[in-house]
Amino acid sequence: MIELNNVSKSFTLHNQGSAVIPVMEGASLKVAVGECVGLVGASGAGKSTLMRLIYGNYLAASGQILIGDVDVAQAEPREILELRRNTLGYVSQFLRVVPRVPTLDVVAEPLLAVGEDQGVARDKAASLLAQLNIPERLWSLSPTTFSGGEQQRVNIARGFAYEYPAMLLDEPTASLDAKNRATVLGLINAAKARGAAIIGIFHDEAAREEVCDRFLDVTGFSPQVAA
């Protein structure tokens, strides 16, 4: 489902003497349907960079990033947008939303984007928010004013509202209490069970062991080591 072939990435800082900073080289991986791969490596080794490359948020310098049959490294913006709508979900560590939009709608949005009926989308959103213990009285408020933990759970609910065939999870269980953590791991396992291919970053080792089928150390992709 997800396949990377020899992907490299560097940043050119034009305004700082055109310094070129290579950050990744020769990254290759494969994630099958229903499989969850955990990225490991020291902080700064390039786990998040790899996720962003896969999501199309960073532009790959070379190589292939295949999600299904779309090559993210080459695709037109609209193809990537369509991919993000229908195929590839991303739960980041930070919630970025339009101010003023109620939490319920924030969570329902990915469903609405694929043309789901508004009532159905809201029901699904409500059930996810309830599972993640967001008090119902907050649903009509914008999540911008929520605490960090609440925002993270809203973000997870939003990420799991639509059943993406491929998912990228960046620290989904960080700073969650045991109960919510269990809920999130349940969601991940359910996604695997329906056939989602998942790449995740988990610092929480227990969580990692519980959902990941195998691990990939991204240290091997860093240019310094390769050199």
């Binding site: 940043f11 962003r52 199309g56 948020n57």
Partner: peptide, 8 residues
């Protein structure tokens, strides 16, 4: 892509 141009 908007987020790509702004983030990278």
């Amino acid at each position: 892509l908007t987020d790509q141009v702004l983030d990278d």
